[in-house]
């Protein structure tokens, strides 16, 4: 199971990196979204995947699911959700005010 998850996370990372190397702003934003999905899956996988086990350690129970990665991933999901939505609005406003969404035309000069 861990191997499948790792491959999935790796694919998400690869797709994300491919997208953030594009010139169009929207594609880059989508790329960061994919990258953060990859990172989240990766955190979950790193804590070992157990099925049907309680996430707490009680006396007598030896086999349990590590609750920490789940806490980390939840925090991280909320943060990246917020940043991505902010970034989408910002990308739209940038497109509106600069009249372009191509990164190579968003370079700017020294004197402004």
């Amino acid at each position: 199971m861990e191997i499948i998850m790792s491959i999935l996370a790796g694919t998400l990372f690869a797709a994300g990196v491919y997208l953030i190397l594009q010139k169009q702003l929207l594609k880059i934003v989508l790329g960061t979204a994919l990258l953060s999905h990859g990172a989240h899956l990766f955190i979950l996988t790193m804590g070992k995947l157990n099925r049907g086990k309680p996430p707490i350690l009680i006396e007598g129970i030896k086999d349990y699911t590590d609750p920490l990665p789940q806490a980390l991933i939840l925090t991280s999901i909320v943060i990246s959700f917020g940043v991505t939505s902010f970034l989408l609005v910002l990308a739209y406003r940038t497109y509106q005010s600069n009249k372009t969404d191509m990164m190579d035309q968003l370079r700017g000069t020294d004197d402004e």
Binding site: I20, L25, I28, V29, T32, L35, S36, A39, H40, F42, I43, M46, P69, L72, S76, I79, S80, V83, F86, L87, L90, A91, R93, T94, S97, N98, L106, G108, E112
Partner: peptide, 25 residues
């Protein structure tokens, strides 16, 4: 130009944050 530069600033910081989470994992 604030919009133009802040998009880059945020994208780069977002990328390094994702890297940070991955490294913590």
């Amino acid at each position: 130009h604030q919009f133009r530069e802040s998009v880059k600033y945020i994208l780069l910081n977002l990328f390094s944050s994702i890297l940070f989470v991955t490294t913590v994992a």
